[in-house]
Design a binder for these strands. Structure first.
Lengths: 191, 191
DNA sequence: TGTCCTAATTGATATAGATCAATTAAATTG
DNA sequence: CAATTTAATTGATCTATATCAATTAGGACA
């Protein structure tokens, strides 16, 4: 039994034991070490991933060769190219481990079967996506409303302790500012 | 029967006739005229709204008194304070009609009952929220990646014909730029 | 149809943050 | 643990866009 994800599920829905066993049975455990990729653009996306241990980032590489970080994921977060997974298309994102990581993967077809046999999992994923939606709205509002300093503070609070797990240039990238600028902001915050 | 929303539902799921009738039975039709508010901050959010006709905007008013537009909605879009609705909390958003509008509202408790009796609607809303999630991710990426001109073009393409329905200062606000700047950008695009 | 009000445009200036370049600090690795 | 690579900091400019102020254009309505 993959206890960490089951705990996570039980925090959101109250499935029967059979439901849990069904869900548990389709999970696969994966390890990636720091710097390795879980996903690259062009790959057909068959899986979403639950983080048991470690830290990862999902990013987009644009035409000009610039990276844009979409999401960090730490313990008990789901990560993946959600759009491609949902449309069963090919990925536009890189997902790279920032720390050695242990993950659980779930396959698209397995998930569809689960929805059929145990529809309560529709709710689980609806709740998760709703929360992710709300978090994104916060991020958009934050960009519109706040300056770099305020957004850095907000970021540190919403991803607890992440500033010690993720390089600053990644945080700067996530916030959409230059590493130099973030460095100056952090200096101000110290004093 | 509220045909426009039923058509919309049928585009996403294949419910039984009874399911449809159940859903239809809990909808209420509402009219708001241009400039009127569908929702204001502090209100307990009991409803989400489907736009039958018209155009609306949802925005947040920050501490400094600045407005930030979260979303426009035209025909066949859902609008509301999704976070507050989901948490059954009080609104932080204004929703205001930009044109005279006809809407269908659904009540939170009714929706919970529908989820129980006709769980296929869990799927309907999961799909909608997933699409909204994806659209938001695009908006975040767009902000990170593109300059004002590129984002204005992208905006016009993704909300078809909206530049003729919505004032430019609202579009500027949505994009997070000043009206003056957007005006200059539009001038460039003409030539 | 003219008056009033709101929106859009244009010009001049200010500023947050980007970029470029150099230096220092911290992590990796043989 | 020394050597090398990678990240963070600092300083000096540059630039996109904000802000402020004034003018023009459009729409709504009496």
């Amino acid at each position: 039994m993959h206890t960490s994800i089951i705990k996570h599920i039980n925090n959101h829905i109250t499935p029967s034991l059979e439901d849990i066993q069904l869900f548990n049975s389709v999970l696969n455990q994966i390890s990636v070490s720091k710097g390795q990729f879980l996903l690259k653009p062009g790959t057909n996306v068959q899986h979403e991933y639950f983080v048991v241990k470690g830290c990862l980032k999902a990013y987009y590489l644009d035409d000009k060769g610039s990276i844009h970080i979409i999401q960090f994921a730490i313990e008990n977060w789901w990560i993946g190219d959600f759009e491609a997974f949902y449309n069963q298309g090919s990925s536009i994102l890189y997902i790279e481990a920032i720390e050695d990581a242990t993950l659980l993967s779930i396959n698209y077809n397995s998930l569809q079967k689960i929805y059929k046999k145990a529809p309560i999992f529709e709710r689980y994923f609806r709740v998760l996506i709703t929360q992710a939606f709300i978090a994104q709205r916060k991020r958009i509002l934050s960009t519109l409303e706040k300056n770099t300093k305020e957004r850095y503070i907000e970021f540190c609070m919403s991803y607890p302790n992440i500033e010690n797990r993720v390089p600053n240039y990644d945080i700067a990238n996530y916030l959409g500012v230059s590493p130099e600028n973030l460095s100056r902001v952090r200096k101000q915050l110290k004093s």
